[in-house]
Nucleic acid binder design. Sequence first.
DNA 1: ATATATGCAAAGGGTTTGCACTCCC
DNA 2: GGGAGTGCAAACCCTTTGCATATAT
Lengths: 147, 147
Amino acid sequence: MFTMLTAAELSARLRSEGYRVTSQRLGVYEALASSGAHLTPERVLERVREQHPSMSLNTVYEVLETLTRLGVIRRADVSAGPRRYDANVAPHHHLVCRSCGMQEDVPCDDVDGSCLQPPASDGFEVEEAQVAFLGLCSDCRDPATLR
Amino acid sequence: MFTMLTAAELSARLRSEGYRVTSQRLGVYEALASSGAHLTPERVLERVREQHPSMSLNTVYEVLETLTRLGVIRRADVSAGPRRYDANVAPHHHLVCRSCGMQEDVPCDDVDGSCLQPPASDGFEVEEAQVAFLGLCSDCRDPATLR
DNA sequence: ATATATGCAAAGGGTTTGCACTCCC
DNA sequence: GGGAGTGCAAACCCTTTGCATATAT
């Protein structure tokens, strides 16, 4: 798993980078990190509004970008469709369901990819290798159990 | 590289699956395959219009889906943003530039990922492992050479 | 001849932008 | 007090939908 920052830790982090501490920023982080999932901005808004009913979608977009710049969350766009963010910033891979779009983290340790090497590439500077395992989640595999 | 289908081969393929052969379908395939790149529907339209000025964007979407169902092209959505298609249907990985969004194919053989194994997963059926190397392309690395 | 495919226009999602108001420092 | 941050509304881009027309079989 990953360890979620406390409000105090996040506040300190924000201030140390010159960002102001606002209830929206703390709320968005808490909503995303406590979910343990990859959320779209829309889903983040739903969760944050339980605590901050006046939060606007626009602000959610803004804050998610700020937190990404801070390095406490990351964008996790594995495929097309709405953007997703993830509070787990440790390196990891993804399980992606082709049918429902569900995304799940896979710790690097669980994947035998130790020999994965980037190609010799003309001038391209590889920063990160990202592995997505595409397939069908158990719910979509066995639709009888759904709904 | 990959071998692009001739118009005759594509026509035969379409007919054998019960699809009609239209100049739009041949044109879209030719535009995508001859580019050797991952194109967005918008970019495909630009290229096709050189030959078929009346082609509509809507039809490009439609035809790209049809050709994907036929299995002669594939969707190559590595990250968020506009959808992209690729005429290279052989298994391969991707180089993705974080700055300009450029996508380039990397043949599997050029990547040492031979030991890449999906995680033991509760009910998730892995169909494919997709590797994206994220980083900066040579143009974005050295902006002086641009524009 | 007829059903499939196309083109057009409008609608629909997701994201960005402009600007006045708010509130953290 | 001042500027960064927020909320609202409109604009924007990408994609889908509905329907009348054209065309491959």
